[in-house]
């Protein structure tokens, strides 16, 4: 079998690279350029006066707080297949499955917990979901609470989270 092999040249072996000084000079140049800009014009500093000022640049690819999507009839789209829990590297998704009685599917989650304190917001659960039932498109980037238990989101809380980018209903279980 023919194999496509690309040989990538190795960098860093030239005299200039081994000297390090040119590279250090390049870095320091950038630092001083910003220092000079900021000192001369204070308004150019990229600072957000959070929380009075909220970020406006959250895109639809931003991995915010999770939510569970709905079907057209407002029921939960999740079929409790445990793909998200299997993919989760932090093991922070806890699902209990039960029989779904309305005939749409056989299975649905009886309980669905995400421990957001353990979650690393990697988005693997969203990737793994075959039903487009879990998403991280709420745009919510901060979650506050008074106790550890406040950060363990249950099924109702996850279903109540709204998508921030217009798509409300699961694309696979609509």
């Amino acid at each position: 079998m023919k194999q496509n092999i690309t040989v990538i040249p190795r960098h860093g072996s030239s005299f200039k690279d081994k000297l390090f000084l040119p590279a250090i000079y390049d870095g320091v140049k950038v630092t001083f350029k910003h220092l000079f800009d900021n000192v001369t014009d204070i308004n150019a500093v990229d600072t957000l006066e959070y929380p009075e000022e909220q970020p406006t640049d959250i895109t639809d690819r931003y991995r915010g707080l999770h939510r569970l999507t709905h079907r057209a009839d407002d029921t939960v789209a999740c079929v409790a297949c445990f793909m998200c829990a299997t993919a989760c590297p932090a093991n922070c998704i806890f699902i209990e499955a039960t029989e779904r009685e309305d005939g749409d599917d056989e299975k649905m989650p009886k309980s669905f917990f995400i421990d957001t304190l353990e979650c690393v917001f990697c988005g693997y659960c969203v990737e793994a979901c075959p039903c487009d039932a879990i998403r991280m498109d709420t745009g919510i980037f901060s979650l506050t609470g008074n106790s550890r238990e406040d950060f363990v989101l249950n099924k109702e809380q996850l279903l109540a989270n709204k998508g921030a980018f217009g798509e409300e209903i699961s694309c696979a279980r609509g």
Binding site: V79, A80, C81, M83, D105, E106, K107, P130, C131
Partner: peptide, 9 residues
């Protein structure tokens, strides 16, 4: 092909 809800998966 409902492997996600199938117990045999």
């Amino acid at each position: 092909v409902d492997c996600p809800v199938c117990d045999q998966a």
